[in-house]
Amino acid sequence: MARWGKVDFRQLQNLQKRLERFEKAEMDQFNEKMVKELAARMLARVIRRTPVGQYPSNTGKVGGTLRREWTVGNVTKIGDVYEIEVFNPVYYAAYVEFGHRTANHQGWVPGRFMMTISEQELEREAPKIIEKALMKYLGEVFKGD
């Protein structure tokens, strides 16, 4: 019969503890952090795309209200799904996004689709962003104490 020698299982036990800790509380924290990061990226993109109104200098009006009012809501978890809302409470935001008729109903002002385009771009890039953050986070979890 062959001898195997001595085996120290402490490292495996430590790894098991770290995995259990990650699986329970830390996974929720990671998911919430990623949702907030993606929302921040979305907010930055949509703000950059939002047009600023141009008014004659003698009117006293200043543009930029629509751009300044973009905001992010709170993270909510419904089942296994995390949600966060990026929105603009200005009443005419939807008209700028999707387009509208002119005041005299003779023409159409095309939409700018600042939210739609930003969302589509982020949706394409999100898997890479999440994977990179997850690999970094798992590297910290598996790093020895």
Rank of each mutant, 00 (worst) to 15 (best):
M1W: 08
M1V: 15
M1E: 13
R3H: 14
W4P: 08
G5R: 07
G5K: 01
V7K: 12
D8Q: 06
F9G: 08
F9N: 11
R10W: 03
R10F: 08
Q11Y: 04
Q11H: 08
Q13H: 12
Q13P: 11
N14I: 12
N14T: 13
K17Q: 13
R18C: 05
L19W: 04
L19V: 09
R21K: 11
R21H: 14
R21V: 13
K24N: 04
K24G: 09
E26Y: 13
D28Q: 15
D28Y: 10
E32G: 11
K33I: 07
M34G: 01
V35R: 02
V35Q: 04
V35F: 01
K36M: 09
K36F: 07
E37C: 08
A39F: 00
A40H: 13
R41Q: 11
M42I: 06
M42D: 06
M42T: 10
L43C: 06
L43W: 05
L43Y: 10
A44C: 15
A44Y: 13
A44R: 14
V46G: 00
V46D: 09
I47N: 00
R48G: 09
R49L: 03
R49N: 08
P51E: 00
P51Q: 04
V52Y: 00
V52P: 07
V52K: 07
G53D: 04
P56E: 02
P56Q: 02
P56W: 02
S57H: 07
N58I: 06
N58G: 02
N58Y: 11
N58E: 07
T59Q: 02
G60A: 05
G63T: 13
G63R: 03
G63C: 02
G64L: 09
G64F: 07
G64H: 13
T65K: 12
T65S: 04
L66R: 01
L66G: 03
R67K: 10
R67G: 03
R67N: 11
R68V: 11
R68M: 05
W70I: 12
W70L: 11
T71H: 12
V72R: 04
V72S: 12
G73W: 01
N74Y: 15
N74P: 15
N74D: 15
V75I: 08
T76M: 12
T76R: 12
K77I: 13
G79H: 05
G79N: 07
D80T: 14
Y82G: 06
I84V: 15
E85I: 15
E85H: 15
E85P: 12
V86P: 06
V86G: 14
F87M: 07
P89W: 04
V90K: 03
Y91V: 14
Y92N: 14
A93F: 03
A93M: 00
A93D: 05
Y95S: 08
Y95A: 14
Y95T: 09
V96G: 02
V96K: 00
V96N: 00
E97P: 07
F98G: 10
F98Y: 08
F98C: 10
G99C: 03
H100P: 05
T102H: 01
A103G: 03
N104I: 05
H105N: 10
Q106H: 02
Q106R: 10
G107Q: 05
G107P: 04
G107C: 05
W108M: 00
W108F: 05
